[in-house]
Simulated assay, not measured.
Amino acid sequence: MQGMPPAGQSDAPAHDRRSAEDLLALARRGDGEAFRGLVEPYRRELQVHCYRILGSVQDAEDLLQETLLAAWRGIGGYEERASVRTWLYRIATNRCLNVLRAGARRPHEFASYQPEVPFPEPSHRRAEPSWLEPYPDVLLDQIADHTPGPEARYEVRESVSLAFLAALQQLPPRQRAVLVLRDVLGFRAVEVADILDTTENAVTSALKRARGALARELPGPARESAPLPDSPQERRIMDDFTRAFEAGDVDAIVAMLTNDAWLTMPPLPLEYQGVDAVRHFLATVALSDGRRHVLMPTRANGQPAFGCYIRDPRTPILHAHGVLVLTLTGDRITALTRFLDNSLLPVFGLPRSLRT
């Protein structure tokens, strides 16, 4: 049997003329290109599925590759009791759950992070680090149009928002998987039971507990909706924030916040809530001692975001300083999420450094 073709190689025009049944028959006979044509339409949505469960775009890519390799090796045993898409989701979901059960998360350089400037006492301190990472919108745009089933409760944009993902990460792994499969993807209870090798009653029970826990974590329905992506209102907020942040104008930034705004820095478990706490952090840490930044606009999780760079007064080089994502409600900012890991910048097509 020949090896599975690497990502990036495709024979799309030929495969477009073949049915899924033809591709499946050829893949079972060891045709790697036919297998690729069979699974390629689901590649990106499977990666997003792994991302929702794991919270890490880098881990999600690893699990996607494991899923496709397992599918390639197991194609001969695929019995067609479910669609190819459902079969792939079964493999991906169980691979993710195995990783979570084993605690085999990606080693993180910030597990013992020591800041250059001492951080003020946080408003809240989580018991564990947050392994959540931002997901580039440019990858979301590549998802094929598979309309979620009638069971789905969440729109795609809502189901990749940082608030939803952060709340999801607080659920036990199996509840997390059940909620994503049922309420995000719209699989029926009987399908989820088959994917997870359990009973419909167990799925229903896990879903009830997951929904209750998620409702306690997510913002209330009274919040005003965020502006539409790339709308004039959103662009104005981004422009105003960029000017204020690059100028080091703490007062102007604070004036854009809701009273209960949050500032968090995954993976650090420190959280600052409220105008006073955020103001103090910006003044004493992020924008202290005349620090000046340059922000490069991008998008993450359906939200406005920036690649952050800090000026070095001794050289014309701007050094990478993480990714910053804004959560908006109406014309205000309700959360600033600063991801400290500079290795995330290339995922957004941004360089590690800039030259002025």
Rank of each mutant, 00 (worst) to 15 (best):
H293W: 13
R236P: 03
R125D: 00
G186I: 03
L23S: 08
E200N: 06
A244R: 06
R355G: 02
P219N: 04
R125L: 02
D141H: 11
D31A: 07
L257N: 12
R338Q: 14
T199E: 09
R17P: 00
I53Y: 12
E121Y: 06
A305Q: 02
H280F: 08
V184P: 08
D145N: 11
L328E: 15
C50I: 00
H319E: 13
M4P: 02
E61I: 04
G349I: 05
G149I: 11
H124L: 11
G302N: 06
Q65N: 08
M265C: 02
V39G: 08
D62V: 09
I253S: 10
F187C: 04
D331Q: 15
S130N: 11
T327Q: 14
R105W: 13
R291T: 14
P346E: 12
D16F: 12
L185P: 04
N94I: 03
R182L: 06
R101M: 09
A206G: 02
L218Y: 00
T198A: 02
Q58Y: 07
L324H: 09
L295K: 03
I253H: 08
V325Y: 06
D11K: 07
F339V: 04
T264L: 13
D331R: 12
D260N: 12
Y113H: 13
E151R: 14
G186H: 05
E271M: 06
A25C: 05
D239R: 08
Y42H: 14
C96Y: 00
A261T: 10
V138E: 15
L46I: 06
R236I: 07
E151S: 11
A300R: 07
E224F: 11
R338V: 06
R211I: 08
A177Y: 03
L162I: 09
E80Q: 13
T204W: 07
Q303K: 05
Q2E: 15
L63M: 13
G55P: 01
A166Q: 04
A7G: 14
R235W: 09
Q303T: 10
R311E: 10
A226K: 08
R101C: 03
